[in-house]
Amino acid sequence: MTTQDIIKPENLVYAKPSIMNDNTMHYCPGCSHGVVHKLVAEVIEEMGIVDKTIGISPVGCAVFAYNYIDIDWQEAAHGRAPAMATAIKRLLPDHCVFTYQGDGDLAAIGTAETIHACNRGENIAIIFINNAIYGMTGGQMAPTTLEGMKTSTCPYGRDVTLNGYHLPIGNLVAQLEGTRYVTRQSVHTAAAVRKAKAAIKKAFENTLAPEKKGASFVEIVSTCNSGWKMSPKDANDWMVENMFKAYPIGDLKNI
């Protein structure tokens, strides 16, 4: 049996979700964003909630998330996505409202909006890409940058006497009464991707729960191979070795 005999529609077992359109993504080769975008699209498609899902894209690399998934979107000012999600969810209570944010957006400029949306127990999902660096602006230090890690604004490595410590904001929001589900996942292997997808699905399902139970927060520990100045494969290996120590994978809260 030849390859051509196998490649037939009836034998298809995996393809990108149909609501992920054919626009070429602007992300660098090997960027974790693409995988997470695909998971978000798969979950929305499988749940059949295209007509009642509103995504909020951040300022950062994922600013153009709205170009790739065919749902309604709003583009936030830097850090304000959780405030926006709050308003949309309250005005459209039967909708699935999610934010998609990076570490600079969520844990630096938008810390107040993140903490307060979580603390109010908003029935929203927050997808948080933590790659410990500012990607879009060219690889500057993020609040999540590891101690000693080099970036363009800490070229000799993050010095705690100068810049303080990496901010484990997932642990912070897990402490709040207003969150119901806080988990930390990754997308560097097929097995990890499957788990991350299940987490995103659970978060999205939580937003549609009939009673307001609280915010769902899915942190994806990710790579930024361009910003880290590594190949995609080496970036994955570096992440496993270094990032997972500071940001251990697994559920932080699930009630």
Binding site: M1, D5, I6, I7, K8, N11, L12, V13, Y14, A15, K16, P17, M20, T24, M25, Y27, P29, G30, C31, S32, H33, G34, V35, K38, V187, H188, T189, A190, V193, R194
Partner: peptide
């Protein structure tokens, strides 16, 4: 391969 592909460029078939 398809699952980890960041750009959604891989379709997989099986018989």
């Amino acid at each position: 391969c398809g699952i980890v592909c960041p750009d959604g460029c891989i379709s997989v078939y099986k018989v």
